[in-house]
Design a protein around this nucleic acid. Structure first.
Lengths: 340, 340
DNA sequence: TTGAAAGCGATACCAC
DNA sequence: GTGGTATCGCTTTCAA
């Protein structure tokens, strides 16, 4: 293990050739004899040579690196998307830089600056709601996946679900099972307050379409200060303590749904019988629950694929076929709406 | 928003000074008049100037970037550690590169090569078990947190828990509550087979110390092919189906514990009454469960802190006070050992 | 206080 | 097939 980092120049000297030739061999470009190639490769291996990425990207003004910006990697839904996007990018020869903003706009702005400085080739926003214009001299392509907001860049694409329809379908599922009083529970991080208004629109619309009277007391919205699980349980408790009742719950998020289920179980209310519950995102939380929670599957593979496709198209300066992509979703029914 | 990326040279020309002066102003180094500073800063801001990181790190041969290598960011315990380490490093002026190896040694080797090429200043391994010697010319400091394996680098530090003692304490907790037949359930990723042997040692030792006969039929070990939750449930089912019985379960991991709890509940066995269960890591899984699962808290903040301290010490070429750091753990009792 | 110029490591054009 | 050399953007030394 050499102490000092070995450069292309060292290889050239040891091999008795020029740096140009070494570069050619190492990158399999240009032409060189088989003998030269063997010598160069052998010496490079012996010396533990690794190309200096800084020099390379300075010269090529490209890093083959994409920044993934997400508010919360500990959120199962986001992290799934992040992992899928990362995998697809890797397959396309790009490295990903995963940035966790924790919903902090200032931190995000700082990140963006840093990333532009680090010469990333593009941005992918995954989840959340931010509006941090990129106030730096760059013209990088940006893709937003399940992300409300714009970067102000000229080359942007958006991949999303039809959120109002999602809220509609969740509500409709409960109504179809006979629910007459459907509550809505939503816990949003303070930084994203109002994050889930689109789903709420669908909820309201569905109630209207099915001639169910909207009851404002059944719209339970809370900030995301403690874990959303506890927050949700608390909202349900408060609602019931005040004497309101419901026979169905649309929970905007599986974690929220799990909190609701726990609170109901705790009160001896039959989840899946007395009260039906549906969550959102088909995350681990909906599956570990007993009873298992009905939810909305959002087709993350497709979202990741479409997003990466759009990004690659922009990176290669191709025509963008569709700047706003809508991916379908699907209702997954489990015990909390089907009963035992 | 300028189209072309603006360099220090552009700023210098516009400000009517030299690049050296611009560099000084921007880095608050050397000396310059207040007037020069104001002009330079104003122009830099107007032009949306961002330093080219590649050029900077090429010149300084330091990137102020640390690579964090972890097998599985979707594991709550690892991701907590990753986030804490990242936070501490950020506070110290370092950026983190988060690398998810998925337990794949080849992928890890590839990563390491890439990271050395990218001129990271150091490595932190978080979790898992790998032994990928760094076969590249570098002499970077490496810290291992809850990670079995060595990089072969000359400057290394290790932060860990006392794993045998952990297994011992888990088992002892159950025995202290009166358990006589204690099962051990372990689900390890195939890549890390035998990952949890250390805890098993403690389990065996505890049984020996408390005069409980070790029953090999109660040691349930499975590979981690499907989600460990299901795997664990299946192991429990198989064991019971074969007619073996137990009154306590040491589950090596909270996800495993949750699977065990679900399987037992499903059979109508009173968890916390008929059978006591203890998990490990104090992750989200132990808290979302009903009944809540007793577990081992591993003091991740302290692990992160000690690890980062060691890394910074090595980066600054200080004396390393302690190459092998052992962090304490703590038994957290909840409903699965305390009953309702 | 300011500036000219060398050099970090790799690439690529253009001679040979 | 091979090599000399300008170049990417920035920092830093040394002189002015």
């Amino acid at each position: 293990m050499a102490k000092r980092t070995v450069s292309i120049y060292d290889i050239a000297k040891l091999a008795g050739v020029s740096t140009a030739t070494v570069s050619n061999v190492l990158n399999e470009k240009g032409s060189y004899s088989a003998k030269t190639r063997d010598v160069v490769l052998k010496i490079a291996r012996e010396q533990g040579y690794v190309a200096n990425f800084a020099a390379k990207s300075l010269r090529e003004s490209s890093t083959k690196t994409i920044a993934l910006i997400t508010p919360d990697v500990s959120n199962d839904f986001f992290s799934t998307l992040v992992l899928k996007v990362e995998g697809l990018l890797r397959a396309a020869g790009y490295t990903s830089y995963i940035c966790n903003t924790a919903g902090d706009q200032e931190r995000e702005a700082h990140y963006v600056r840093d990333l532009v400085s680090k010469q990333v080739d593009g941005f992918v926003y995954i989840g959340g709601r931010t509006h941090v214009p990129h106030e730096v001299a760059s013209d990088l392509p940006v893709v937003h996946i399940d992300h409300r907001g714009s970067s102000g860049m000229s080359r942007e694409a958006f991949v999303d679900n039809d959120l109002p329809r999602m809220g509609y379908d969740m509500t409709k599922t409960l109504v179809d099972h006979g629910c007459k009083r459907v509550a809505l529970v939503s816990v949003s991080a303070s930084a994203y307050h109002g994050d889930e208004q689109d789903q709420k629109t669908g909820y309201v619309q569905c109630l209207y379409d099915t001639d169910i009277q909207l009851d404002k007391n059944l719209i339970l919205e809370g900030p995301h200060e403690q874990p959303s699980l506890l927050e949700a349980a608390q909202l349900v408790d408060e609602c019931l303590d005040m004497g309101y009742s419901f026979d169905g719950v649309v929970a905007l998020g599986d974690r929220v749904a799990l909190g609701v289920v726990n609170a109901l179980k705790h009160r001896g209310i039959g989840v899946g019988q007395d009260v039906l519950v549906i969550g959102m995102d088909d995350s681990i939380y909906s599956r570990v629950s007993t009873p298992a929670i009905s939810t909305i599957r959002r087709h993350t593979s497709q979202m990741a694929q479409r997003g990466v496709d759009a990004l690659l198209a922009m990176l290669h300066d191709k025509e963008l076929p569709e700047p706003r992509i809508v991916v379908s979703h699907e209702v997954i029914e489990r015990a909390t709406t089907l009963g035992a």
